[in-house]
Amino acid sequence: MKSFLGKRAIASAISLIGLIILVFFLSRLTGDPTNLYLPVDASQESRDRFREIHGLNDPLIVQFFHYMSDLVQFDFGMSIRRAEPALDAVLRAFVWTLQLAIITMTLVTGSAIVLGSLAAYHVGGFFDRIATFCSLIGASAPDFWIAIVAIVVFSVHLGWVPTSGTGTVLHWILPIGVLFIRPFGLIVQVVRGSMITALSSAYVKTARAKGVRNRPIIFVHALRNAMLPVITVIGDQAASLLNGAVVVETIFGFPGVGKLMIDSILQRDFAVVMAAIFVTAVAIFVMNILIDILYAVLDPRIRY
């Protein structure tokens, strides 16, 4: 197990370095930030000074080495726009996104497991129809559309919840509700399929022959076996939320990492973009390792 974790950490670090190199040069392709930050009629002198301060005059490769040597000391540079360390801005936003992702995924996982299991227990029954309906919505309705409709209905017409921003518990309801739909529809289907297999397995037959009651047959015997493929999908979906739910965060003015990233790209605030990508990448690597550990916890046959 220890050597497995060590290997995974090294592999993750290598991917991370590759990612940083890629993003560094790609982001430089978007153009010179000087034009964006200084007024159109700024003098050549002030343009040069701006370039000098932010190290934009050096050849790209030199800029890259400066960046990397700072990075080794966990210095991601200053945000041009915000005049604060890029990492501080990113971490602040990331905490918001992390909360949003954890709450949403917890709700999604819990409800998808219950509904998916009940749907599998009675294929074609009442719960199965609900599950199919939810999946259809999740797969076919784009989240920006749901977000806007939700604002119109619940904020504008009914006035139950605020349209955007943060501050109270009410502010969380719409973003979570909108982010919930797509992963829920997907995971319900995976749980359902996996549970149908598990419920028709030989060990469930044994449990019935033993006189085990229905509820433990579903939630003790079948579910734990059915969870392995489900966890993979949960991890995948959680990763896309951690990346920043860009559209949803923008629509609801939610100060998460997705919104920060979009803003910084538009503002050519390279340091922030780089830091944001770095932080979310680390978060996703950590989550993947957690999922691998969870596999081994759920299934004693898996040993690393």
């Binding site: 060990y203 037959k205 044994t206 033993k210 006189g211 076996n225």
Partner: peptide, 24 residues
């Protein structure tokens, strides 16, 4: 019938590997 299963009438199967739950 559940109360009879296992208590009064018990059953064993052909392939014990697949008939035992692998994760418990």
């Amino acid at each position: 019938r559940r109360q009879l299963n296992g208590k009064r009438i018990a059953m064993i199967f052909q392939d014990p590997l697949s008939h035992l739950n692998p994760v418990y």
